[in-house]
Design a protein around this nucleic acid. Structure first.
Lengths: 228, 228
DNA sequence: CGTCGCTTTGATTAATGTCAATAGAGGTGG
DNA sequence: CCACCTCTATTGACATTAATCAAAGCGACG
């Protein structure tokens, strides 16, 4: 088993278990690795599995018939995906880079949950956390301007992806189109807003996927709607 | 104790418990009733409580400093509010009409959860359900047109509020402003879209808070983006 | 009967989307 | 190593949706 070297060993579900519980959990898991651009789960398909990401970034999205897409989240190490799936997945999960993960059969997890109630506690905590994030995103999508959305996104990204401590360097594993679909904007608007923020010396665009936050305080103010 | 006559007795948390468990739960609860327009919990305040709505409708919202507001949900009988609150509430809960509810001290619930794991299971299921709703709302806020948002809202409302079975008659306990803040629009746009739907004979506006769905199929199609 | 709050309707503006062209970056093969 | 190709991002011109500003209608209530 890979648990000893797993990057997610000390986060989320796995961290809740001692060695023997972990062995049982590992027994129910299937280790997988997929390259960029693969679909981990597709909206509408039977939600038989549940995965725990141990490396890489996954894009979660909902699509409309005519091609409009809303990215509902980007998740990485330690994240659970497919938690609530009542019978069918309610979104599509796609790899943005090389992703390693454990896949669990939903049915096999059930009795494990009964014997280790701490697992359910962790899932509940994770679900509540995701819910709070989703609610913040609703405020962003419903009420913030394009500029405010970008500022919020950059601030959030500077603490979400792999770093716990906020850093000036922000690595964005997704392309502009994914950012646009996450923020409810178009690629062009994302590009224009980034350019504007750069011209005002609030950020520096070192490379397309590599941004430096120059004035964090100002960005936070913009993101919360305090300035313009 | 009021459990015997409580409208929420056979939904959510309470339904999971047998008589003696329920007695314990009741022991930790405080029954309250508030008129319209009261604040049940305020964003940013210490999240000491957790409530279970037994009657009425509660509006959950997040506000920005300059007055912009996003309603993140309307909840009624059986709903849990304040679930995940890590230390502080992440939204404000306001009564839209007369609301009756049970209030629990978060600390007193903890040991009850340990002894009745089924409670945690129910909360997890509820949280996952809310998460899926939040994700659908993100699609609405990020990608749908005003017309599509209204159609979606009406269809959802026709099965959410008090009725399990979808009905033609939709009673909206909230005012236009709340609908606007829920759909990420302005009052004027909500009004205009409702008028347009009425003129096309898809709905009838019997009274401001009382709408009849005339062509459900067409509304569903509009809401999912299939037509215009 | 008049006032107040909420809703509807109308005219205009502003923000973002759409369409189109250009510019870079990265990869491949001659 | 360089030229080319493709994919992505940027920039510009214009169109469109929904917001804003303003006024009038409607209902409830004193």
């Amino acid at each position: 088993m890979h648990c000893g070297t797993c990057a997610a060993r000390h986060v989320g579900l796995c961290d809740a278990l001692s060695a023997d519980g972990l062995a049982e959990l590992a027994d129910a898991a299937c280790w997988c690795s997929l390259p960029r651009g693969c679909i981990l789960m597709a909206e509408g398909e039977p939600g038989a599995h549940f995965i725990n990401v141990s490396h890489g970034t996954v894009r979660l999205s909902k699509d409309m018939q005519d091609g409009r897409r809303q990215v509902i989240g980007f998740v990485s190490t330690g994240a659970f995906v497919g938690l609530g799936a009542e019978a069918r997945y309610s979104f599509t999960a796609t790899t943005l880079d090389e992703v390693r993960f454990c896949r669990f059969e939903r049915s096999r997890l059930r009795d494990l949950f009964l014997r280790y109630p701490v697992l359910e506690q962790r899932l509940l905590a994770a679900a509540c956390n995701e819910l709070a994030l989703a609610q913040s995103q609703m405020l962003l999508l419903g009420r913030k301007t394009a500029r405010e959305r970008l500022a919020t996104f950059l601030i959030d990204s500077s603490s979400n992806f792999s770093n716990r401590e906020p850093t000036a360097r922000v690595v964005l594993p997704m392309c502009r189109g994914d950012i646009a679909d996450y923020l409810g904007l178009t690629i062009e608007t994302v590009s224009r807003c980034l350019t504007a923020l750069r011209q005002q010396r609030l950020i520096a665009i070192d490379a397309e996927h590599n941004i430096s936050i120059i004035d964090r305080t100002a960005l936070q103010a913009i993101g919360s709607g305090a300035t313009n």
